[in-house]
Write a protein that binds this DNA or RNA. Structure first.
Lengths: 336, 336
DNA sequence: CTGTTAGCGCTTTCAT
DNA sequence: ATGAAAGCGCTAACAG
C-alpha cells in the first residue's frame, strides 16, 4: 500500500532512550552489561518504536547467523516436501532456522544451480542439498566453500558428506520379494543416472538381484512417467512376464492406471512394485507393494550432520546409508 | 572438513585484477561502464578466486535485492508443496528469487510466526504467506512493514492483499453435484475456523447449499484426520444417509480406507466427495469426486500481486477469488 | 573509463 | 557502566 516508513534502527532507539547506540546493542544482544535503569529505558524505546533487528546488518558483522539453507529439487514431490518438513523440525529443535530454495519443478540443472547460489549469497552457515538431478560436480565446489550435506541420494563423492536411503538394499529386497512369490520373468522400468541419481541405482539393483536369483529380466529402459503406458504395451507383448518393477510409487500408480484403462488389474494380471512409501500414495486404499524410505530420519540425520560440521565436531560418518523397510501390499501376489 | 578459507571479497578480486574495487563492483552489477580489457581481467580474477557476491552486504546498501520470501505452512502437504513450486517458477520468470521458510508440520502458531520473522529479518522485499492456520491478526502487522500477499486461503482483511480459490463456490458445487444425483440425506465432516481457515468456509458452504436445496444434513463436526473413522461409525448409525462430504482429499481417502476396512465401498454403499484435486491423490486410479483448486494459478497470481506492489503499481484486485472446477469421479453416483 | 569516498545498520574492541 | 570509533562487503555518488 502507500509508502511504508523507514524501519527504525538502533540509532533511533538510542536517541529516544537518550543513550548511545552501543548501549542499545548491548541490551539487545545481552552481551555487555548495562544499568538496570538504562536497560529498561532502551527496552521501552525499542518497543515504542516497533524496532526489529536487521538480521542482514547483524550478519555482516557477527560471525554466526544460525541460519541453514536447504535446496530441494521440487517441493511438489512428496518425497522432497516431507524431507523439507523433517529438516525444518530438526533444525528448529537445534536452535537453527532453515530457509529453502527450490527448483521450478523442471529438470534444468541451471535452475537448480541458480537456486543454490541464492542460498549461498544469503550467507547461510551451511547447506543441505536434496536433488536426484544435480550432479556431484555441481555440488562439490560449494562443499569447499561451506559446510554441506547431500541428503536423499546416494552420494559417495569424497569431499561431501551425505545421508540417504540404501538404494541397493531397497531394489534388492523388492526383487527378492517378487522372486520369493515365484515370479520368474520380471519387467523393470529403468532410468539412467543422468535422469535420476536415485532411481538409476535402485532400478539397477533390482535388475542385478533378479538375475542373481535366476529370474529373467525384461529391461524396459526409458523410465519417464510419460513412458509408462508405452512400457506396458511392451510388457503385454511378453506374456511370460508376470510382474513389473517401477522406480517410484508415482510410476507404479501410473502403471496401475494404464492397466485399469485396458481392463487389467494387479496383482491378478500383473504384480506391480513401487518405491518410496511416502505421502498420499502410501495409503492402504491403494495397497501398493513398495520400499518405504525413512524420510524423517534422513532429514534429521542430514541436519545433525550439518550442525556437527558447523560446530567443528568432525563428522563421524562421512556417508550414512539408512535402511528402509519393505511394505508388502496388495499389488503383488504369488505367481498365479 | 578442514578449515575453509575466508570467502574472497571484491577487494581480493580487485587486487588480483589490478584495479579498484569500484571497477569490480561495476563489472559485477553491470551498472557503470568499463573497458573491455579491464572487464575481462576482472571476470577472470573473479572466476579464479571462485568469487560469489555477498548478497548480505549488497542488500545493506542496494535498495533492491530481487528476493521474495514465501512462508508455507507445511511443505509435505501436496497443496502447499505445489503452491511453492508454482510461486518459485513465476518468481524466476519475473526475475526474482524466492526463498521460503516452513512450519514443522505441527499446528503451532508460534512456529509459524517464528518462520515469518526469519524471512523478514533476511530482508526479503516482499512476503507471500500460505497458511490456513495463521490468523489475520498475526499477518497484518507484517503487512504494514512490507509488501505482503496471502495466498491459498480466503483472506478478506482490509489491509492485506490475497489470492485464493473461492471456497464458497467449491463447497456449493460439490453439494449441488450430490443433490443432482438424488442424494437427500448427506453427512458433512466439518472443521472450525480455528482449525483451518480454508476447510471451515468450504464445509460451511457445503452445509448451507445442501439445506438450500432441501437436503437434510448430518453435521459430523470435528474433522481432524484422526476423527474420520469415528465419524463413519456415526454415519452408519443413520441408514438414511447416502453420501458423505469431506473437507479434503486426504479426509476422503481416509474415509474410503475406513469403509474398506468394514467391507464397504464407494459409491455402492456411500457416495464420497473430497476437496483439492491436487497431487498424487488426484489419480484416476482412485477416481475421487472432488473440487480441483487451481494451485498453479493461485501461485502465479500471488507472485504477480506481490511484484505489482513492489513495483508500486497499485494492486488492482485487492482480493482475488479464483474459480476451481468440479471433477466428477467414481466415488459418487446416483442414489441407489 | 577509473579511483576515491561515504555510508547501509550493526557488533565490538578500546578508552573513559 | 557507557561512549567513541573501527569496520563487515558492497554500491553509489563524486571527482578526476
Amino acid at each position: 500500500m502507500n509508502e511504508r516508513e523507514r524501519n527504525p534502527t538502533i540509532i533511533d532507539v538510542a536517541e529516544r532512550a537518550g543513550v548511545s547506540k552501543s548501549v542499545v546493542s548491548r541490551v539487545l544482544t545481552g552481551h555487555g552489561s548495562v544499568g538496570g535503569q538504562t536497560k529498561q529505558r532502551v527496552l521501552d524505546a525499542a518497543a515504542e518504536l516497533g524496532y526489529v533487528v536487521n538480521a542482514v546488518a547483524r550478519a555482516m558483522v557477527a560471525r554466526r547467523t544460525y541460519t541453514l539453507g536447504a535446496f530441494v529439487r521440487d517441493a511438489a514431490t512428496p518425497f522432497y516436501g516431507s524431507l523439507l518438513t523433517a529438516m525444518q523440525g530438526r533444525a528448529a529443535a537445534l536452535g537453527y532456522r532453515l530457509v529453502s530454495a527450490t527448483g521450478s519443478g523442471t529438470f534444468a540443472v541451471a535452475d537448480e544451480h541458480r537456486a543454490l547460489e541464492t542460498l549461498v549469497q544469503l550467507r547461510v552457515e551451511g547447506l543441505v542439498v536434496c536433488s536426484g538431478l544435480l550432479p556431484a560436480s555441481e555440488v562439490v565446489p560449494f562443499a569447499h566453500r561451506m559446510p554441506l550435506v547431500v541428503a536423499g541420494r546416494p552420494e559417495t563423492h569424497d569431499s561431501v558428506t551425505s545421508v540417504f536411503c540404501d538404494e541397493e538394499e531397497g531394489g534388492a529386497r523388492l526383487a527378492d520379494h517378487l522372486v520369493d512369490l515365484g515370479h520368474r520373468h520380471v519387467a523393470v522400468l529403468r532410468l539412467t543416472a543422468e535422469q535420476s541419481l536415485t532411481m538409476e541405482p535402485r532400478t539397477t539393483a533390482m535388475v542385478r538381484r533378479l538375475r542373481e536369483r535366476g529370474a529373467s529380466v525384461l529391461d524396459l529402459g526409458g523410465g519417464w512417467l510419460e513412458d509408462v503406458d508405452a512400457a506396458l504395451t511392451r510388457v503385454l507383448a511378453h506374456p511370460e512376464v508376470t510382474a513389473v518393477m517401477t522406480p517410484s510409487d508415482r510410476h507404479a500408480v501410473n502403471l496401475l492406471e494404464s492397466m485399469q484403462d485396458r481392463g487389467l488389474s494387479a496383482p491378478g494380471d500383473l504384480s506391480v512394485t513401487g518405491y518410496d512409501g511416502i505421502g498420499p500414495l502410501a495409503t492402504p486404499l491403494i495397497g501398493l507393494t513398495t520400499w518405504v524410505q525413512p524420510v524423517a530420519r534422513i532429514g534429521e540425520h542430514a541436519i545433525d550432520a550439518l550442525v556437527a560440521q558447523l560446530e567443528s565436531a568432525p563428522a563421524p560418518d562421512h556417508h550414512q546409508a539408512l535402511s528402509g523397510v519393505l511394505s508388502a501390499g496388495r499389488t503383488t501376489a504369488r505367481r498365479g
